[in-house]
Design a protein around this nucleic acid. Structure first.
Lengths: 211, 211
DNA sequence: TAGATTGTTAATCGATTAACAATC
DNA sequence: TAGATTGTTAATCGATTAACAATC
């Protein structure tokens, strides 16, 4: 197979497959593209095509070995080793996401993304901890990211601070950012920014309330 | 134009256009597809095609009237009248989203989605209020939704309760649901469910950390 | 009028689905 | 072996882009 950048549409489905594999793991040792697809809400042909981008993981007449495929998908998504994550903006949304993430990391053994540092601009909270995680000042992003080997970040700052925080994270070498601020962040193309803009999503949904 | 269901890809961009229009409103009375597109991160041809699904809003040689287009987009998205929304699951994420939404509704005059009712299963919080909004028991969803004319809902309950809560909302006539629980909810096709699954999103992003 | 920009049609691009030979 | 299911190629579908006549 000639080298080609794999599309985001494909990458989005891999965590879904991972979730299905975890669900069936205790009940069966192999799974067909048929079953994996129907549990993930995807056609069997698309499951096979998605997986084929990365290798030949299945066996004709049998299907895919559940544990083997799980391991392979984890490697592809870089989830085979713990990932260190930061969160910038310890307001009410930031605190809620911190709790959510910490609990998930504690309770769910397959969830390996670990929130290890918080950042804020308010001197009153800098130096304290929340849910057991230290809060640093945003001017320390570069130093702390390097020291703690942080690879991902969640941004929950007000709209007018989001771009600047994005710049600081990018300079520090963070390559993947989940942005909850209601503005898009422009960064070099080697930094992947995913927008989780609640108000945009609600406005879109309003289209479907009919009337 | 023969009738055709408008794709979700188109609907997703409309709130983006709305945001750009609000931003330029004080500075100019009209805008070209060129400028609207570049500010929204979309090609000019696509802007024109998206808008053309709903009518002929522009003027050759001039562009689109900012206020007129804003009004039209609001009507299309049903944002021309206030929308009543509920939130189910008053845990830490639910409370954070409640605050976020209430503040947005208070401070931003173009944000017309109003969170008017909270629901939870815990008798200890039922009957109290949070951020000025009453918390009802989930068995009262049907009654309260009807009485308060609620059209949308946010779901922030644990995974194992999400489907049941979805059922209750659908039975009560809610047609649009934003689901934060880490499971998909199956509902009749006239109910639109958008998934905002944080852990899925983080696992996807991990692909891009390289290494 | 001359210049600008729309709405729309045709061309292109990319993603999904169907089909099937290979093979466990 | 017979049945099942993969990996892959070709066909289809849908979304985006390019081009341009119409017209403000």
């Amino acid at each position: 197979m000639a080298w080609k950048r794999i599309s985001d549409a494909v990458i989005r489905r891999l965590p879904l497959y991972l979730r299905v594999l975890e669900e069936v793991k205790s009940k069966q040792s192999s799974i067909s593209s048929q079953e994996l697809g129907s549990k993930a809400g995807v056609t069997p042909a698309l499951v096979r095509k998605d997986l084929a981008w990365f290798g030949e993981f299945g066996k004709q007449g049998v299907g895919y070995d559940v544990e083997f495929l799980q391991d392979e998908l984890r490697k592809i998504l870089h989830l085979d080793a713990p990932i260190h994550m930061a969160l910038v903006g310890v307001g009410s949304l930031g605190r809620a996401l911190t709790r959510y993430n910490r609990r998930r990391f504690r309770d769910d053994p397959i969830f390996t993304i670990n929130l290890v540092a918080l950042f804020d601009a308010d001197p009153k909270v800098v130096g304290t901890t929340f849910d057991g995680v230290s809060i640093h000042h945003i001017t320390d992003i570069s130093r702390v990211v390097a020291k703690m080997d942080i690879q991902m970040a969640i941004v929950t700052v007000p709209a007018d601070a989001a771009q600047e925080v994005g710049n600081l994270l990018a300079e520090a070498g963070v390559k993947a950012i989940l942005n909850f601020a209601p503005v898009s962040i422009d960064l070099p193309s080697d930094v992947h920014v995913a927008n989780a803009d609640l108000s945009l999503e609600l406005q879109r949904l309003a289209y479907y309330i009919h009337g």
